[in-house]
Amino acid sequence: MSEATSELYSWRASIIKKQLMALTGLMMCGFLLVHLAGNLLLLKGSDVFNQFAYLMVNNPIIIGLEWLLLLVFLMHTTIGFRLILENQRARTKAYAVRSTVARGSKFAFISMSVTGPLMMVFIIVHLFDLKFGSEYLVVQSDLEVRDLYRTVVEFYSSEVNVAIYIAAMCATALHVQHGFWSAFQTFGLSHARYNRLVELSSDVFALVILIGFGMIPIYFLLGYS
């Protein structure tokens, strides 16, 4: 294995793949927060929310960011699937008995490789349900805008839709609870004095995502619109 036949480093190195996962993951965490902030406007009523939605889809910067987000999403999923395959290949013969005790024990049934693909399916469905869902128009302040508020309210009037959504948010919370902390570890941002803080932030972040996103459909389901 001489230097000539093999590059000293590679963009395909395991650590780099993990770091790309961490980077894209953190970027999507940022998106989640912005998305959550937007969702909370639903509580302010249809005018405010529809205005916001109109501004978002007509701002060239936001449109640019949307394409970036798509790229980030595609990277995260492609590398993610590659990692799943590689990891399966690393142990083709399973243990008869396996007991886990560390962080793995919390994820024994719901690990990143399970929550990840679930989230991917949900995100695609979610886009078709809402972003590309039923289009209503409404005139607000002399401007004809899409009544996305109505689309949302209609969608969450179904118990089944709400149940699926809440389940997806549970998966998301689990995913980010490990992913957020994990990204710091993967970039080497680890120090005995601050590790606990990062882990705590990770837990808080997951809870914010779960409660923040989860409460809105329940709010609508209960008829507060």
Binding site: Y9, S14, A90, G104
Partner: peptide, 17 residues
Amino acid sequence: VREMDQSGFGNCSNEAE
């Protein structure tokens, strides 16, 4: 790390087992 990757080990998932 290059040698580790070439030997067929999996990737780290930070689960600390």
